[in-house]
Design a protein around this nucleic acid. Structure first.
Length: 563
RNA sequence: GCGCUCGUAGCUCAGCCCGGAUUCAGAGCAGAGGCAUCCUAAGCCUAAGGUCGUAGGUUCAAAUCCUACCGAGCGCGCCA
């Protein structure tokens, strides 16, 4: 909060650009050295003086203000001491809007996330897009943007063809009624194993045009042509899946602005393919398949020879329709990094076709969720169902609550634990999932953060209805723990902005953890109730509680007053 | 072959974008030891644990930037 003021002063004094200063400013390794430091190395060339001399010169030129109490040169560094009392006075005044911003006012950001394939269950690999996307929605909303959450279901494609074939051959109706998720999974896995049994050794298993693959393609073609019987099966699959997805979204407390499926864009996609052909951007093979030449020998097929649409056909259609509908200022696709090439191709084609909104679209790739060394693959049936993960963590939370005889909400704790495991990692890196870490509620975990919130709530509750605007909360001197808590709280707005800019919820997750750690240290060493500083400390606890609540809200993690 | 991502304590990760300050590169988990007349022990404290993949280069200064190499994963489908 006072950092901006320091930047302003330096801007005037050094003639550097604001952003440049912002990047240069750092926090000294020891708080005794100062609260913020400006390294003078960059200026030494310009002023033709040693950084040490420049630091001394600047220290004498910059005058202290009511918020900045002291400016000291220490070697090549110019160290700023902020007036912590003044900062503390501001911190205890914060309210539920703390960290909110208007930088996004009037701007629309569409986010395409989650997008599971119908007919397949969600497993732990699917949760990343879902949870990251949701957190981004919340972050942009917090920053004043108008976010649009789009759940773009994989409701068409060869996997559906496979499933339809399997459904016709081996469906167990009672099983479907009882447990649709597992019955559909069983059908899909059975189909894949049949298909695999025909694969000849040494050949890429999925590239082969064996009889099973042909059957699946036929089923898909029938569906696209509007065959009634096939359509009916498809509808049933979609409905069964939809119910299962909704159950999970409810549990995760995740909402979308709209839920669409790829199938809804096949007409639009095909129309774009036609346009591309007319404009000679796309070419036709002899067998009828349509492609765009992206590199000198990289053909990207945008329509199959049997005239059915491909993945990218739908995405072309969806992109154009979405822009028409929302006129977004930015469109973020939150998907696995393995789709990077697909999005590069998608964006290139849209650009070639002259759609001027293309630069507004970005792909946010994220790494794989790994279980041991395994990467989960639905077709092998080697998966850990997301629903099972959630059930188990909730169950564990229940045990813990019973053990402690508290009033925690097992669902909030269990779901929070799972979300946090995913969000604390930077999107680009892989996530190692294990039951041990998922069921551990200690240390850098969701429940630890919720616990810190609950402790703060508990202190406030015990204090009764203290006067929230107690002006007698005069601050004379701050303890070490109070100081670091105040400074940490003051970082929050900057962190949210950065997380939005970088599309990176892990910044908020890591901040939350550090904040909670500092708070825990604070209340262990500084008694709140009954202390002569009670009035001030209660308000500080309240400020912490507000900040961690907002921070966790951005991650989609719910808090409770007691746990 | 071409291209992308990643190598930081036994394990899981911050820090790298935007290079900086002391004898000390931070956390968490696991393992070792301690804290209960005191606001919830899902907590706190202490000790232990690291040639930041390797080798060069740039720089007054490299975990951070550049190059090469080694290792892991992925992409290069008329799959999604």
């Amino acid at each position: 909060m006072f950092k901006e003021e320091i930047i302003g002063v330096l801007e005037k004094q050094t003639k550097l650009r604001k952003e440049e200063i912002e990047n240069l400013i750092e926090i000294p390794p020891d708080p005794d050295l100062g609260d913020y430091a400006f390294p003078c190395f960059v200026l030494s060339k310009h002023f033709k003086k040693s950084p040490n001399e420049i630091a001394i010169k600047l220290a004498s030129e910059i005058k202290p203000t009511k918020n900045i109490s002291e400016i000291k040169a220490a070697g090549p560094y110019l160290n700023f001491f902020i007036n912590k009392i003044k900062l503390a006075e501001q911190i205890i005044e914060i309210n539920a809007n703390f960290g909110k911003n208007k930088i996004g006012k009037g701007k629309k950001i569409a986010i395409d996330f989650s997008g599971p394939n119908i007919g397949k269950p969600m497993h732990v690999g699917h949760i990343r897009s879902t949870v990251i996307g949701d957190s981004l929605i919340r972050t942009y909303e917090f920053l004043g943007y108008s976010p649009i959450g789009i759940n773009y279901l994989g409701d068409i494609g060869l996997h559906i063809g496979k499933l339809i074939v399997a459904y016709e051959l081996w469906l167990d109706k009672t099983a479907l009624k009882k447990d649709p998720v597992n019955e559909l999974l069983r059908l899909y896995v059975k189909f894949c194993s049949k298909e695999k049994s025909l694969v000849q050794e040494g050949f890429d298993e999925e590239m082969q045009d064996n009889e099973w693959a042909k059957k699946a393609k036929e089923a898909l073609k029938k569906l696209e042509l509007g065959d009634k019987k096939t359509e009916k099966i498809w509808t049933e699959i979609r409905q069964a899946s939809g119910k299962a997805f909704d159950r999970i979204y409810d549990l995760l407390n995740i909402n979308f602005t709209e839920t669409t499926g790829q199938s809804q864009f096949s007409d639009k996609g095909r129309q774009i393919v036609m346009n591309a052909l007319e404009k000679a951007i796309a070419k036709k093979e002899q067998d009828g398949a349509v492609y765009v030449l992206l590199d000198k020998d990289h053909k990207k097929y945008i329509q199959r020879s049997n005239e059915t649409a491909s993945y990218i056909t739908y995405d072309l259609g969806a992109a154009v329709e979405r822009y028409k509908k929302y006129k977004f200022d930015k469109m973020i696709y939150v998907t696995d990094f393995r789709q990077s090439a697909h999005f590069d191709a998608l964006f290139s084609i849209l650009k070639l076709m002259g759609y001027d909104f293309t630069p507004k679209m970005v792909h946010l790739p994220f790494g794989t969720v790994k279980f041991g060394n395994e990467i989960m693959a639905t077709r092998e049936g080697q998966i850990i169902l997301l629903e099972d993960v959630l059930k188990k963590t909730i169950e564990k939370a229940n045990e813990e609550i019973k053990k402690r005889k508290t009033k925690g909400d097992a669902e909030k704790v269990g779901v929070g634990a799972v979300k946090y495991i995913i969000l604390k990692n930077e999107p680009a890196s892989d996530v190692q999932f294990s039951w041990e870490t998922a069921l551990n509620f200690e240390g850098n975990t969701g429940p630890y953060l919720q616990y810190s919130y609950a402790r703060a709530s508990s202190i406030l509750k015990r204090a009764g209805n203290f006067n929230r605007n107690n002006k007698k909360a005069k601050i004379k001197q701050l303890t070490k723990e109070e100081t670091s808590l105040i400074k940490k709280i003051s970082d929050f707005p900057e962190i949210v902005e950065k997380a939005g800019k970088q599309m990176n919820p892990s910044l908020i997750a890591n901040y939350s953890f550090e904040l909670a750690q500092i708070f825990n240290e604070f209340y262990h060493n500084n008694k709140v109730i009954g202390d002569k500083e009670e009035a001030f400390r209660l308000r500080l606890v309240q400020a912490f509680r507000t900040t961690i609540k907002n921070s966790l809200w951005l991650l989609g993690i719910e808090v409770m007053e007691e746990m």
